[in-house]
Simulated scan of single mutants.
Amino acid sequence: MSICVPRLSAAALVLAAMLAAPGSARADRCDDTAAQLKGQIEGLTIGKTVANTIYLDHPAAKQLRLGCPSRTISNELFATADSRKPQPAFFELVASAAAIVFTIPKPDTLRGAKRCIGRLGLLRGDDVKTRFRRLDIRCNRTKTEASISISRGKDE
């Protein structure tokens, strides 16, 4: 009986160390965030996970991705609209998702997204970087679509 107890405790320690690995904890938090997005945003579906990125799908966006934490950023939300001038449904989707991911009030994320897309044009060009409420927001526009990327650095 005394021989089995040390073996069981050693196996329990190895199992606990494997479960507490930092890589799996990050993935679990990112998966939890994606599940929270799916639960709170109507019409959102979760796609595949590739290279620390979870692909999402929603009718208001051509492309939607949730970037998991890395060495430099805590999270990243990337969305692409179908046209150069995104529809209000696109802004609502981006604002809702950013509010959930970064725990910021939705009106603030909506204002930051609209401000960034609104700055695209003749004077500032088709690639704009801005900061709003401790978020790094980057907007880009091509001839057929507009995209927005919202992230927060690890040090903030």
Rank of each mutant, 00 (worst) to 15 (best):
P22W: 07
C4E: 14
A16Y: 05
Q40T: 05
V14H: 11
D32L: 12
D32T: 09
M18H: 05
A16R: 12
A10H: 10
G23A: 10
C4N: 08
G39I: 00
I41S: 01
R29F: 01
D32S: 15
A17G: 08
P6G: 04
R7S: 06
T33F: 01
A12R: 12
G23W: 09
A10Q: 12
V14Q: 14
L37Q: 03
M18F: 10
A25P: 01
L13W: 02
I41P: 00
A20T: 06
L15V: 03
A27K: 11
A25L: 13
C30F: 03
A27M: 10
L19S: 09
P6Q: 08
A21H: 15
M18W: 12
V14P: 00
P6T: 02
A10S: 11
L19N: 07
M18I: 08
D28E: 12
G23R: 10
D28F: 09
D31E: 14
D32H: 14
Q40F: 05
C4S: 11
L8E: 06
A17M: 12
C4D: 13
A16Q: 13
R26T: 10
P22N: 10
P22F: 11
M18G: 07
R7F: 06
L15R: 07
G39T: 04
Q36W: 01
C30N: 04
D31Y: 05
I3Y: 09
V14I: 07
A16G: 03
A34Q: 02
A27L: 13
G39W: 00
S9Y: 04
R29A: 13
L37Y: 04
A20W: 08
A12Q: 10
R7Q: 11
A12Y: 02
T33L: 15
D28I: 08
A17Q: 10
V5F: 12
L13S: 13
A21I: 01
A34P: 03
A27Q: 14
R7D: 04
